[in-house]
Nucleic acid binder design. Structure first.
Length: 188
DNA sequence: TAAGAGATACTCT
DNA sequence: GAGTATCTCTTAA
């Protein structure tokens, strides 16, 4: 079951938590690469200084102000793409969830090749790594993730335990504990 | 195993 | 022109 708009039309932090254990699918050359989402971060709107959408709408962040369930891909540090999903309640002006880590399921060989690493755990245990492993670029920006296409998110497993931390790599809004993760080993 | 620095280009001021 | 929602390699212990 692909997650529908309603799933994303809730408070961003809640959606970030609920995305743990869900399945991310990327089609490439007719093959489905899939992975279980193991780490996420919530970025809201004007009430969140760390968010791209904290100040105002710009060319880059305008998707965060728009329709929920859309992908928000952006380029950072001169070489990495980040994958987000727009999620917000009707009260929020903007919001998105950063996918920070996945546990590879289908197409592990291809993802390994894309990354050029030996260890299974190094394939996609970071936001920049998983986009490389799955071949996600600006081409996947502003796509509808609630429809079965090149990129979508569907049901997965229910996490046994959820860990809550401060977000990573930011300088403002550090006090907000909006980083969520789960331990895949609990399930295998 | 931990800490530090460099790579690199895009976005916003 | 400064800062960046990161990763990898190198160095040292």
């Amino acid at each position: 079951m692909i997650l529908q708009k309603k799933f994303y039309e809730r408070e961003t932090v809640l959606v970030a938590k609920q995305l743990l254990g869900k399945t991310l699918t990327k089609k490439i050359h007719g093959i489905e690469l899939t992975g279980i989402i193991t780490e996420t971060e919530a970025y809201r709107g004007k009430d969140d200084p760390a968010s791209h959408a904290a100040v105002k709408k710009t060319n880059r962040n305008q998707v965060m102000f728009g329709q929920v369930g859309m992908s928000y891909v952006y380029f950072t540090y001169g070489m990495y793409f980040m994958l987000n999903v727009v999620a917000k309640s009707k009260k929020q002006n903007a919001g998105a969830v950063l996918i920070r880590g996945i546990h590879p399921q289908n197409g592990i060989k291809i993802m390994k090749k894309n990354r050029g690493v030996k260890n299974m755990k190094d394939i996609s245990n970071g936001p920049g790594k998983l986009t490389i492993a799955m071949g996600i670029t600006m081409k996947q920006h502003n796509k509808d993730l609630t429809k079965k296409s090149e990129l979508f998110i569907s049901d997965g497993i229910k996490p046994k335990k959820i860990y809550q931390k401060s977000r990573i790599g930011i300088s403002k809004g550090v006090e907000k504990q909006w980083n969520f993760s789960m331990n895949v080993k609990d399930h295998f």
